[in-house]
Structure formats: structure tokens, C-alpha cells
Design a protein around this nucleic acid. Sequence first.
DNA 1: GAACCGTGGCT
DNA 2: TAGCCAAGGTT
Length: 385
Amino acid sequence: MPSSPPPEYPSRTPMTSPARARSPRGDFAARLLAWYDRHHRHLPWRIPPRAMAAGERPDPYQIWLSEIMLQQTTVAAVKPYFETFVRRWPTVEALAAAESDEIMKAWAGLGYYSRARNLKRCAETVAAADGGRFPETMAALRELPGIGDYTSAAIAAIAFDEPAAVVDGNVERVVTRLEAIERPVREAKQDIRGIVQTLVPPSRPGDFAQAMMDLGATICTPRRPACAICPVSDDCKARLNGDPERFPLKPPRAERPQRLGAAFVAERADGAILLRKRPTKGLLGGMSEVPTSGWSARIDGDDRVDAAPFDARWRPAGSVQHVFTHFALTLSVYHARHDGSAPPDWWWAPRADIHSEALPTVMKKVIEAAIPGAIRKPTRNGASR
DNA sequence: GAACCGTGGCT
DNA sequence: TAGCCAAGGTT
């Protein structure tokens, strides 16, 4: 435990003086930030506290990009995508000028594809605005597509030092445990935001936000939290009560219905595969796919070969299972050699380019089932792995 | 306000 | 293994 807070965070008089509290709430931010200074995660988009103290500031473009990618997505999954995007589109102007198709291709596999469509729209808006600079306040950021309560607060705090209350899933968990909040998080959201707002320090609000999230990700974890090494455990009512893992309270999730369908992989003599584009809105909106039947909500869905988009020697090639957020899908896969012409707006994707098409993971599974090895990424020497 | 919207890792 | 969970937003 740090014996003295940094000079920029003088201890304040505790708001209350509970007899047992060893750590008055006025110290909360100081103790959390002292922990963050020593134990922060090293992330590609983050400026570490030492560099922040030297006056360095993060690139608002990179903070925005990382925050969009991190929505409901793990840090590990985001890292390689973030590196690719920043290398390929180093500025918001570059991203705004990119073809939508190229952005969808680069986003393929990361999920929640409306994020990629909104990313492009947001980049265009920002690039067209005065100087191509991001708005610097939470309120103004909140107006941009794909940016809601959490993301606007996070960008404002991290990139622009606004003392905004940043509340994500990590912070909800930390706060519901600190206060032993017995109501479902859905209902307690506003209270949580209010509590966080009282804790945000006037300086280093961005580090504070990131510290809360790092704490949630590494110490105050959903299961088996490491209370013994938590820098704010003295403040934690859930720990005092003995069962922090019980928080946050969440209602049981609804059952996932099962859907059924068929997918058709047409392969040309040269190995090219027939693809088409899905509608812009809805599930996998704007992404590419092989032709499929509808995905019936009924267990006796249209998974038979007579659902094929055209006549060919379709041969069964197994089935693919995939779990989406709100339903599970089983696709019967069919494969055919086919050299006929493609319907308008469909295209033959050369085998060498398949890995870079805007194919969602479920479609990569389908193609792999029909043609094992088809998705492999070429290596630098031109061979296939 | 509730439903919709992906994917991969972990237990 | 089957469910839970992850730096949520839009409709």
C-alpha cells in the first residue's frame, strides 16, 4: 500500500468517517493510480503513466479506433487487428478515404460488423470536420456513429483529460463489489455512474479510467478475484461480506434457439469460389458469403440440397456448427464443381484471395468444410502453410 | 426497454 | 462441455 499519494493528489478529508474504514474514500483514486503506475497493462494504443507524466498524450484516432474494436471484444482479439489498421490507415483521414469493402475485409473475423460500417461513417464525419480533428468533449463525441455512453466517456477521458465517468463491464463489476450492490446491474447503471463520478480525480482522469478497467481485468475478475493483492480491498463491501464473486447480479440469460440451413460452395476449375454479398443491415451485414438457404428458426429447416441456388452436382460435405449471440446455427454444407456463369453481383473469388475476402468466421468454416485448406493464408515465400 | 448483433477463450 | 464472458451500440 502506498504510504503517501503523489503530490498532485492530496488526500482529501473523508466524506464520512466510518469507525472501521482504514482507507477513507478520499484516497481511492490515489491508491488506485499508485497501483496502476506499477501494474498497468502494456497495450499498443496506451501511453504509459511515466510518458504521460512527461507530457506525452495518446493519439485520439488510435484511442477511438481501439475503443470501437474493444466493444464486447477481448484485448487479445483486438491487438492484431489494431496493429493492422494503424499500419494500413495511420490517420482518420486515411481511414475516411478507404474503400468500405477494404475496411470490411480488414474487420472480418472480429465480429459485430456494424462497428466496421459505423467506423467508416464516423471517420468520414471527423475527417470532413474542421481540421480533421476529433471532438474533444464527451457530449460531442456521443453524437458520432458507433459512439455511445461508454465510448464517448472513454475517449474524452483518455485522449482529452475530461473527468468523465467511464463505465464498462469491468467498472460495473468493480463498483458493484465495492458497494455490494444487490440490485441487478441493469437497474443500477445510473447509480454506478454516479459513484464513479465521485471517484474520478480532477487530474489523470484517463489513467483513472484505464486503471479501473485494468483492475477489473486483472484483479477484480469475474471469477476468483485476487482480493489479497487488490489495492482497494479495504474499501470493498463485498469482500467484507465474504462473497465478492456474487457481484454483479445478472439475470439468467435466455435460451439460445437452434436454427438450420444449407450452404453451397461452388468451385470453378481454377479453384475460385463463388461468393456474394449479404445485405448491408442485419446479421453479418455487408459481409461476403457463399450462397446459402434461409436459416430457419425451425429445427426442420431448409438444410436439403434442393435449396441450392442453381443446378449442379452438389455433394454433401459435412456440416458446420456456429454459435451467434442469440441463436445457434447448423449449416449442411454442399460442394460442387461448377463452370457456369455466375448470377449478376456474385463473383468468383480466386483461391489465392479467399483469405482476404470479407468472410465472417462462419463462412470460413463452411469453405473449410467443403475444401480443406482453402482459407490458408499465403506465407511470405509464396507457399501455403 | 428489450431484442439484435460475432467471435474466441476459459472453465 | 456448455455456458459465461469480453473496454457496448443501435433500433
